Simulated assay, not measured.
Amino acid sequence: MKNKKKYKILLLIVGCSILIALIYKVGPSIIYQQFIILKWKVLLLFFPFSLVFILDTLGWKYSFKVGNICFKDLFIIRLAGESVNSIIPSANFAGEPLKAYFLKRHNISMVDGMTSVVISKTMMVITQIIFVMIGILLFLYKLNISSTRLTGSIAIVLLGIPVIIFIIFIQKHGLFAFLLKLLRILRIRIRYIEEREVRLRELDENIYQFYCHNKKKAFYSFVCFFMGWLAGLLEVFLIFYLLNIPVDTVSAYVIESLSTVAKGITSFIPGSVGGQEGGIIAIFTSLKFGAGVALTFGILRRFREVIWTGIGLFVLSKLEWAIAGLPTNE
Rank of each mutant, 00 (worst) to 15 (best):
K121P: 00
Y141F: 12
I130C: 00
R187D: 05
I37H: 07
I108W: 12
N214Q: 14
Y101L: 08
L300Q: 13
L300F: 09
K181P: 06
I255S: 06
W321I: 14
R105K: 15
V198K: 13
R149I: 13
V254Y: 09
L326F: 10
S86C: 12
S29H: 10
I126M: 11
F46C: 00
L175K: 01
L44Q: 04
F314C: 09
T266P: 03
I167K: 08
I77A: 03
G325W: 09
K65F: 08
F226C: 10
Y208S: 08
I168E: 04
L12E: 06
F102M: 09
Y141T: 13
F102G: 02
A324D: 12
V84Y: 01
F64H: 10
G264W: 00
L316I: 10
N3L: 12
T122V: 03
V254F: 11
S257W: 02
G325P: 10
E205D: 15
W308C: 12
Q209G: 02
I108K: 09
K41A: 03
E194R: 04
L137K: 09
F131T: 03
V273W: 00
V198D: 15
R199H: 15
K172M: 13
V254R: 10
C16Q: 09
I283A: 03
C70L: 09
L203A: 11
E202T: 14
I18S: 00
M110D: 11
G271N: 04
N107R: 15
F222W: 06
V247T: 04
V315F: 12
L175C: 01
F53H: 11
S153R: 09
I190T: 05
L183I: 05
R78G: 04
Y101G: 00
D204Q: 11
Q33M: 12
S221G: 15
G271R: 07
V14H: 07
L326Y: 13
R301Q: 12
K61Q: 15
F289H: 08
E96S: 02
